[in-house]
Design a protein around this nucleic acid. Structure first.
Lengths: 202, 202, 202, 202
DNA sequence: AATGAATGAGATTTCATTCAT
DNA sequence: CATGAATGAAATCTCATTCAT
């Protein structure tokens, strides 16, 4: 349950609090996303940066504080990813989830999922996804718009889970191009475009 | 990260190993599903049942042994749920995931997801979902059947994650009846040629 | 540190307290000699006999009681081995230590040595060896008879330790015939006047 | 089996890792030699030094690591004791075993003997004694040199066992001067000096 | 007479955190 | 500003023993 892949990025550390803090945050981001809240230990994070463990409680108050800082950091990155014309939001999300091979922009998602045993993580995830769902729901006039948007969110979530958490055999290796057609088809069914006419209604 | 909600189910415990073992298994099932492998501690499980912790290593060999017993138990329940005419497999899965208010029949899924930081859990989940996906892929003649089946699996996964792990606001409370139409619609899109004609193709 | 070689000798155990007790004692004798007091566990002993662990505290009071019973049992066996013409005592002891391939008759010695972390064992050993040394000391008229006898005891002790505890390479496999000449030579040096003249005095 | 004789050597402990480590090693050396591997518990060692138990796993990796550190420490002491002209090796060994009233220089021997239920200890002892025996065997031209050397080793071993492990009454209090004559006499019999002529052959 | 169930104490080890330098 | 030392709590597991049948 403990993967010891310490990778010291710096050796002659300059006495620069700001930068040290940022480095710790970055290292923590990776660890939390990879191992989840519980399985991550502070000593490894500090070792990644090449710095003493005691700095983490000092800078972030506690392990929990560090986690929240990571979440806050990623939230702003996600906010950017969500910006743009709303009618292409879902595609953008998918591309984000798929496109970046390292999947960096969805570390937030993975981090939260991997730490779902840690209640604040689940709680924050709820907030986040409600926001996303609300955005998506504005794109259709269907009476059950909310549920339909939720299904879209579920699909994206499922894709991320299967690719990043579970490592499901074929889906993990599929390219964006291979997935996009079917995905968009599902979207057009769940969120029929008002202007374009609802092709998928029975 | 440690929720101490000891709920002693029995007070005058009869000296019955079979039953005690079963009770421990049941308590563990709940804890593991709720908190994940790491965050669950044996003392709480024992307290739930009202017995001494030492019984768990004795009866199940180790914490890991207990976890595997839980997984094995749920696997057989899931196997039942998956039996029946293959063309309705997905619906059955969804109903299972949704129908039972407590969602008992999918504890396996939840348990494994919550414990995804524990490698055996992720590994087992991979196996399980590959099986499921293969079953689903037989239902369409589309050239990218595998990916389409994976998307169905992703959707179901996402629904379970959102309902059980995240507790997403609206989706968690939706009834089967409310969700089924949209879900089936998506299915007919992803896995066409299912006996009937394909209504959703453009 | 725990060798699990359970060898159930009986299956349909007759309800005979006397015999059960004897079997437990025999099994304990082997285990204590092989593994020492601490490393021996009662459950394995009970399993060897095919009987429930709880019988041991019942019959022998405690683990310590069992150990003492084993020691007492072996003491009487050793007493027999020591009987005979005193001038050949040392040879008899050596033959006992060497002759029996399984070395049964010296299990007492081995048992006590292996359990030397357990104070009563050391204490009892002291008593035993003092007795032995006193016997040997009667065989010489040398002024430092006591020390000379002690050296004989030390030599025998060392041989047993090296053969049975340490498993020293060549000594462990040496036959009685190979060792006896040198041994007797040493004896004649340490305990002269044994009937014959003192060949070894300078 | 547990002797709780905590003897805090320091009260105002200076924050000095090096020294703390050394103190732990020293305390462990005593405990292991006195009680053996199994019967020694880390909490007592830590208490002897007046520090928290957790420092031991941190500094030495594990209980086993600590044991090996002790053995390595004593090995180097023993190596020194063995250096010098080979024809006086045995006497030097005896003096070492006898000379130091506390017998410090043979703690290695005692430690290993007391921990003979712990396989690595027995294994290491075998290696050590084989080495010693080989050294001794070079001192005689007798055809059974190996066995004769083994008997010398056995004698020394027995002396150490009787003095340090068993606490045999008279031998424990004998001075070097008292023992040396008889010991040397035995040596001259077992390892007849080529140059000096073999006085002890019949 | 004997069994099986269950207990309670104890041991090692991990880890976030605090203290002093 | 940062380090290294040290702490204390918690967690799993082993084992002799007691309880009830």
């Amino acid at each position: 349950m403990d993967q010891k892949e310490t990778m010291p990025t710096k050796s002659a550390r300059p006495r620069n609090a700001e930068e040290t803090r940022a480095d710790l945050l970055a290292a923590a981001r990776l660890r939390f996303a990879r191992d989840g809240f519980d399985a991550t230990n502070l000593r490894d994070i500090a070792a990644d940066v090449g710095v003493n463990v005691a700095l983490i409680p000092r800078y972030f108050g506690s392990k929990e504080g560090l986690f929240q800082a990571v979440v806050a950091f990623d939230r702003s990155r996600l906010a950017q990813a969500m910006q743009g014309p709303p009618e292409h939001l879902a595609e953008r999300l998918l591309k984000n989830a798929l496109g970046d091979p390292a999947g960096r922009d969805h570390d937030l998602f993975v981090t939260l999922l991997r730490s779902s045993d840690y209640p604040p993580a689940a709680s924050y995830m709820r907030t986040l996804l409600d926001l996303l769902s609300a955005d998506l729901a504005t794109q259709t006039t269907a009476s059950d718009a909310e549920l339909r948007a939720d299904l879209v969110v579920a699909l994206i979530t499922g894709i991320v889970v299967l690719r990043r958490l579970v490592g499901k055999t074929s889906l993990s290796e599929a390219t964006t191009e291979a997935l996009l057609p079917s995905f968009q088809h599902v979207l057009s069914v769940l969120l029929p475009d008002v202007g374009a006419g609802d092709l998928s209604n029975k």
